[in-house]
Every structure is written in structure tokens, then in C-alpha cells.
């Protein structure tokens, strides 16, 4: 059904915007996001992917493909170290699918699943970068100074953006049905 739905335009455009907004926010609010000792990482892309899963209804967006493509762009453009995000993004899509299938989509369940997504994403990012020697923080300081602020920031994103995005998706879903 994805080929017939208008979401085939809306979803990639949203992904495109959120991808670059992550970087722009990190630059514009760098004084707030990276004030010592806390560092908050903006994950609008994750939010877009997760909500895409919850709002798609019977449209079936090819989320995994988009996640891989976004991950490759992320590796190339933002970090310059290939191989991490191109695996992590599809992994998070898979995780959302596995957990999400047990619940009926609602604000609270989506909130919980997104919480788990961000936590797993940040943890795997930390673990991988520790192995290749880029991150050098201890586990406790990672949890306290990176994970907690990042979760706070992204859950605020979620609370603010959930309803507008819900309206957006339901508009295009209805159009597809009529």
C-alpha cells in the first residue's frame, strides 16, 4: 500500500529534515546541549523512525531500508567513522517492531518503546566507541552525564511532537483510504 499512499513523499521528506535538524540543533544550541558535564544528543531521526512505525497503520513503510540509508549518510557526514550508525538505525527499527507488536499503539506505549529505543541506541553507541577507542568515559559517568540528559531531551521532543505528527499521519492515512 506504501506505493499508493502519499506517505511515500511525506516520510522521506520528514526523514531528510530531521536528519539535518539533528546537526543544526547541536550547533545552534551547543551552549545548552554540551555544557559540562552534561551532554545531550538530539535524536530526531530515531523519533521519526519510531513514530513512523506506530502511525503507519496498514501502509507499511519500508522502514529498514530508510534506516540503513540514513545510517550510511550519518556515518559519512557527521561522524566520519563508517560502520556504526548504518547498523544501529536498522537495529532500532527492528527493536521497535519486536516490542511494539505486543502493544496496541497509544501515547503511553509509544513513549515507553521510544524510551527503550533511545537508551539502547546510546548504550550501543557508547559500547562500540569505547571498543575502538573514541569514547573514554567510565560507565557510571556515561549513564549520569550522557544517557540521562539525552533521554530527557528526546522524551521532551516526543511529548511535544507526538500529537502534531499523529495529526499529520492520520491526514494522509485518511486520504489513502477515501
Amino acid at each position: 500500500m506504501y506505493r499508493l499512499s502519499k506517505l511515500r513523499f511525506v516520510f522521506p521528506i520528514g526523514l531528510f529534515i530531521t536528519f539535518f535538524l539533528d546537526g543544526s540543533f547541536s550547533k545552534i544550541f551547543s551552549g545548552v546541549f554540551f555544557s559540562y558535564p552534561y551532554s545531550m544528543v538530539s535524536h530526531l531521526v530515531l523519533l521519526w523512525l519510531a513514530l513512523g512505525y506506530f502511525f503507519q497503520n496498514d501502509v507499511h513503510i519500508p522502514l529498514t531500508g530508510f534506516a540503513v540509508a540514513t545510517g550510511i549518510c550519518f556515518d559519512l557526514y557527521y561522524s566520519g567513522i563508517l560502520g556504526l550508525y548504518m547498523v544501529l538505525f536498522p537495529l532500532i527499527v527492528w527493536l521497535t517492531r519486536v516490542i511494539g507488536q505486543y502493544f496496541t499503539p497509544s501515547f503511553l506505549t509509544a513513549f515507553m518503546v521510544f524510551f527503550i529505543d533511545v537508551a539502547v541506541f546510546e548504550f550501543l553507541n557508547y559500547a562500540a566507541y569505547s571498543v575502538i577507542g573514541i569514547a573514554s568515559a567510565s560507565f557510571s559517568s556515561f549513564v549520569l552525564y550522557t544517557l540521562a540528559p539525552t533521554l530527557a531531551l528526546n522524551l521532551i521532543y516526543f511529548v511535544v511532537l507526538y500529537y502534531p505528527l499523529y495529526l499529520l499521519y492520520s491526514r494522509y492515512n485518511e486520504e489513502a483510504r477515501s
Binding site: 547541536s26 557527521y78 561522524s79 553507541n125 557508547y126
Partner: peptide, 12 residues
């Protein structure tokens, strides 16, 4: 932009 990561302080 800036890399959205807590491990890399990188500007583009």
C-alpha cells in the same frame, strides 16, 4: 553543523 554525538566534538 555539528556532529550530534557526545563522544565526538566535531564541526563541519
Amino acid at each position: 553543523t555539528r556532529t550530534p554525538s557526545s563522544w565526538q566534538n566535531q564541526l563541519i
